[in-house]
Amino acid sequence: MKPAAFDYHRPAGTAEAVRLLSDLGDDAKVIAGGQSLLPIMNMRLAEPAHLVDVTGIAELRQTTVDASGARYGATTTHMRFEYQLVPDVTGGLLSRMAAGIGYQAIRNRGTVGGSLAHSDPSAEWPTVMAALDAAVHVLSVRGMRRVPVRDLLLGFFSTALEPDELIVDVEVGRLPASTRWGVCKTARKPGEFAESLAVALMEHDATPRIRQPRLWLGAAADTPVRLAGTERLVEGHDVDAVTADDLVVPIAADLGADPGAGDPAARYVLHLHAVTVHRALRAVHEEVSDE
């Protein structure tokens, strides 16, 4: 469990970084927090010949905020979101998600850009950023482009990034005051990756009614899944009138899974997704009645 030999580069600016990536080609990999890449390299599942460490680049650590939202530098760590050391334009949703990632030591080093580029469907950022319809700005020697997160994530550890492209920042729109959120992460123990991860957004309505729900589910497929059918089913219902069991069939349909699966593991997984989505919905409701 020692990585294969590699050359290490630590550029001071993004221009230098993308120049390196372009010159070094397929043999190079960006390294940010290293919390996903290094374990893979130690197990020799990846043997890049060059590492381009982007944590020395000051501009990747910057956050800019305006009325429409924020652009978070790619190497903003989970910890900075968790403790709101960067402004949270989502009314606490980003902070809440970040706090659920791994352990403190992981959050101190792991970055939002690294997590999105890694595209693990069980991870927090892909699901919440897809739910928020966030976008990444991506730089290469060919210039900058904007890629919505929903288009960025193509599958397990697979994205729309070219090998020489660098995520520079993540653009998140400001959540309107009328929008409320609820989340639920189900994991075997604190610090583990999610077995199920649900993000629910909906419009505020002083009643327990579910209005314009947007439901996203992580850890269920190779990318985060929008539960469009489930949204339609719960729309307009009182949250108290919906049970977890009610959600099994629509979630299965949204996932393209068989709700009658005989295999105990598959049956449990589906049920757990239903419970997790249900809890996220209830969390929105609880949030609303708090006021």
Partner: peptide, 11 residues
Amino acid sequence: GTRAEAEDLAA
């Protein structure tokens, strides 16, 4: 000489 090189050889 080192574990990493021993792993290279082992591979």
